[in-house]
């Protein structure tokens, strides 16, 4: 299953790495792709993945990170 979210606060490579690093704490996530140009993150994950928890973790990193679900 795939979920794509938009995080407008992404502005550099470090942001992408940071998001990947946080995602590492979620074993349900099997793959993650961060697109710096479109500021989107595509997650490949198991069905029982809790997007809300992940969103909470990401938004907790800083106030510029706001997760908007695209698909």
């Amino acid at each position: 299953m795939q979920t794509t979210v938009s995080i407008p606060g992404i502005h550099c490579d470090a942001c992408g790495k940071l998001i990947k690093s946080v995602s590492g704490d979620f074993p349900e996530i099997t793959d993650i792709a961060v697109n710096l140009t479109t500021k989107t993150v595509t997650l490949t994950h198991a069905d029982d993945f809790a997007l809300d928890d992940w969103t909470k973790e990401i938004e907790g990193l800083g106030e510029t990170y706001k997760v908007q679900r695209l698909s």
Partner: peptide, 14 residues
Amino acid sequence: GMTCGSCEMLVERS
């Protein structure tokens, strides 16, 4: 190499 707030957090997390 740290240039922004994200870098700080990344280093701190690591």
